[in-house]
Amino acid sequence: MTQLLAAVHKEWLLQSRAVAPLVAVLVFGATALLLFSFAVGPDYELLRGNAPGFLWLALLLSSTLTLAESFQAEMEHRALEGQLLLPASATAVYYAKALANWAQLALLGIALVPLMVALYDANLPRPLALFGIIALGTAGLSAPGTLYAAMTHQARSRQTLLPLLLFPLVVPVLIASVKATSLLMLGDPMGQVWSWTLLLFAFDAIHWSLCGLLFGRVVED
């Protein structure tokens, strides 16, 4: 636990000293939202209906930037190797990194919501519930994303490899998050939102435990 707290503190220091990449990812997400509206055209009915899908696609695309850069500092001067020699537990390193990625993606998601409302004239009757879905969905992106980022960062063509590995894997997150967001924004007469939330919980529970278990094998020399 002490190791985890120390690793989380290290992540906090890293993130707080590098604000520019966070802003760049936010601008990328906002641009993606803008571009999606060009693909559909100025039909507000259509834009409102597609808003949940566009929000999650923008988040998914932005997540590859956040995740791909997340191990940059660790790989410089073999810092990750140094941490593991201290010895810091690989599990603590993984969970701290995954928590940092999760926090970044969740904040990005929350920051994109007002833009989505403005651009697509979307309704937002239950903002807190939507933030909950964003938290669960981004947790599902960050757990396997952090594991794959650790692998691909050491390989050639990491910018290509990460989405190639991650996107098929997070299909359930995308489906459940888009459905839950649609139900929250467009109405849920059958009370289905809970079943999609449950699916997100299940995905998160499985991947946060499985990836934490396997991370040690990925970074071992």
Binding site: P168, P172, A176, L199, I206, H207, L214, V218
Partner: peptide, 26 residues
């Protein structure tokens, strides 16, 4: 590294298949 990483990725991908199935089954 190649063997270890592809083993890890195979386990994660295989564990994901039933979840994908249940997510799209609805």
């Amino acid at each position: 590294k190649r063997a270890t990483w592809s083993a890890v990725a195979t386990i994660v991908a295989y564990a994901d298949v039933p979840i994908v199935y249940f997510s799209v089954r609805w």
